[in-house]
Design a protein around this nucleic acid. Structure first.
Lengths: 231, 231
DNA sequence: TGCCGATATCTGTGATCACAGTTAGCATGG
DNA sequence: CCATGCTAACTGTGATCACAGATATCGGCA
């Protein structure tokens, strides 16, 4: 195995097999919007960049392909799937249904979970209000808030399903958000987050569902309006 | 590559890479309840049985592990995950939410889709009423009916999520159903299926949701009552 | 200048080998 | 007869090699 200092820390820090680490590395970049739809990866290139052989990369990519986060056609380069507008509307509808349900379930959460949600809400709010927002950090904070809510729902199954959904929409959503400070400055997301937190605190399941649904719908409409999705 | 006649037909019939075929082979057996929770597989044994090298098996198993359908701990045999009762209640709750939503969405389906649902409903009804029911066939027919409904919902995303859920619950549910003619003879599932079909025909989303929810809940309660789930 | 085709380099797929950790069976001692 | 410890056969993991299909680049021709 080659030694590539840049990745040493990351790969050695995390636990598990090499396959697991490569998987997490790619998954993080996918949900964080560090890859654009249509981007191509090479097993050998990823392997070399991470200082491992192509075997762990193959298995990690295989897993991500099974989850629809990557597309692998025989003998062709692995690619981040392109998402057509119709497809994007479909996932958005499903996300509203499922993540909305999780938000509703989060209303029964205990104090610690609610404190965690509140903390993540504040992080995102602070980042949104900054004069020159750090967009990468905002994307991460947005994710942290949402998953604090979903974790509070107390369903490991639902959480796994939502993680899979984010893996698929990450490249589409976060890429655009990363490049466009406008929407963040508008504060729409901030308002929905605050509403969700308030609803969860008050135990009002319907309002929590609607707040998260509104947040998802808002981001989705923004992406669709930018019109960079094919078809 | 070895030639194992028993599997030749199946493997040559299906398309795609060897990995895809092995994946489908294992996935089918998983949702069909041909594996019991706790069963152990050996990469080499599966490879030999299917007449391929262990490489395609590795990738297929890797994908199934990513979906939670198989459990693979480093250096230990690959296993069908054991499901604790609490976990099973969790997936059941999630299934009711998600598959119920799909059933509701199926109410807008076109005539061809509804005809398909009706045909699958009839298949299952005939099998249920048989004097000596073919349980394996009944399990397959039940699956065919449910997926006809879910396909009619018209959401590829939702369908993929549901397939993943069935991959996880298949070993728990279908294994028991395969061994117990009693529940089938009771006709509870048959009644729920009929109710779902009628509701979808009438475009009554709420009733469709409740029928599918009832079916899922009924099967789940049966499994839980048999008390073979740990903890 | 623009199009087209041959080739060199890239891609993932599959097989095989080496290795270290796990497991189960068998022999040995109580 | 049972418990215990050792060993041998098993497990998945990772690396490397061979191969066939896709792709892009560069040269030649119209």
């Amino acid at each position: 195995m080659l030694h590539v200092p840049a990745y040493q820390e990351e790969l050695e820090a995390s636990a598990g097999t090499l396959t697991d680490r490569v998987y997490r590395h790619l998954a993080d970049r996918l949900v964080g919007g560090r890859f654009a739809p249509g981007d191509k990866l090479s097993l050998r290139a990823v392997a070399e960049a991470l200082g491992v052989s192509i075997m762990p990369v193959r298995e990690a990519v295989s897993r991500l392909a099974a989850e629809g986060a990557l597309e692998v056609e025989p003998k062709k380069a692995v690619a981040v799937p392109l998402m057509r507008a119709a497809q994007f509307r479909d996932v958005t509808r499903v996300r509203i249904e499922i993540e909305g349900a999780a938000a509703a379930m989060a209303c029964g959460a205990d104090r610690a979970a609610i404190r965690e949600i509140a903390a993540r809400e504040k992080d995102f709010r602070d980042l949104s209000r900054a004069r020159a927002p750090d967009l990468a950090a905002a994307v991460a904070a947005n994710q942290a808030f949402h998953f604090a809510v979903y974790r509070a729902a107390g369903s490991a199954e639902l959480l796994a399903i939502i993680e899979r959904l984010w893996l698929r929409v990450g490249p589409v959503i976060n890429l655009d958000l990363r490049e466009n400070p406008q929407r963040l400055k508008l504060g729409e997301a901030m308002a929905f987050h605050a509403a969700a937190l308030a609803a969860i605190r008050a135990g009002e399941a319907r309002k929590a569902r609607e707040a998260i649904a509104g947040d998802i719908r808002g981001a989705s409409n923004f992406i669709l309006s930018r019109g960079r999705l094919p078809e």
